[in-house]
Nucleic acid binder design. Structure first.
Length: 196
DNA sequence: CAATAGATCATCT
DNA sequence: GATGATCTATTGC
């Protein structure tokens, strides 16, 4: 990825909703694997009933209260891990859930980790899928995204069109429009709309 | 094509 | 002891 630049910590030190929008089109890199971010969700912190930080500071939410530009990785449903990027200044626990990637590099290794998937665009088309495809685990909880193997870069590419919708898979604040995605991208989860 | 059950465990009450 | 920011396979039209 010649010409790609690591996003500085100042990028993350803004409202979670803003960081989420701006992350669309950026590149998530983990060693030799990389993917274009095509779907995200913002979680606002203590004022957001759907956010983990809604219940305040606990051992698990500690990294959300720390420096922005770090990873927050947790286990959900006993078997899948979800990757979040910590946003907002220290003490303000906003974050952005990475929901889907379009694979760019290291695709052979991704296929090995997800042997049952055939279509490239389904290798990382969901929060639990992308962590498996990219080999991201709870070991990365608290990792600094501005230095190290796990990082986010910009290569100047901008999505032609983006869209907004309610967040997926939550019960509280289920109608808040905080999910952002690249319109028409085949790697976006649930890209086929069902009904209105 | 749409709906649903089952897998499986860290976290918090 | 209950509950998830999920995914896949399977069942039923």
């Amino acid at each position: 990825m010649a010409g790609a630049v690591i996003l500085p910590r100042s990028f993350y030190a803004r409202p979670a909703e803003t960081v989420a929008r701006d992350l669309l089109g950026k590149i998530l890199v983990h060693g030799p694997a990389a993917g274009r971010i095509v779907e995200v969700e913002a979680y606002l912190g203590e004022s957001d009933p759907a956010a983990h930080a809604f219940r305040g500071l606990t051992p698990r939410t500690r990294v959300l209260y720390g420096d922005p530009g770090h990873a927050y990785v947790y286990l959900i449903y006993g078997m899948y891990e979800c990757l979040n990027l910590v946003a907002e200044p220290p003490g303000s626990p906003g974050c952005v859930l990475i929901r889907a990637l379009e694979p760019l590099a290291g695709i052979a290794a991704m296929r090995k980790r997800r042997p049952q998937v055939h279509a490239v665009h389904q290798l990382a088309s969901g929060p639990g899928k992308l962590t498996r495809a990219m080999a991201i685990t709870r070991r990365h909880n608290g990792a600094d995204l501005t230095a190290g193997l796990l990082r986010v870069e910009a290569d100047g590419w901008c999505p032609p069109a983006t869209a907004v919708s309610p967040r997926i898979g939550i019960r509280s604040a289920a109608d808040w429009p905080l999910r952002f995605y690249v319109e028409g991208n085949p790697a976006v989860s649930r890209s086929r709309s069902v009904s209105d």
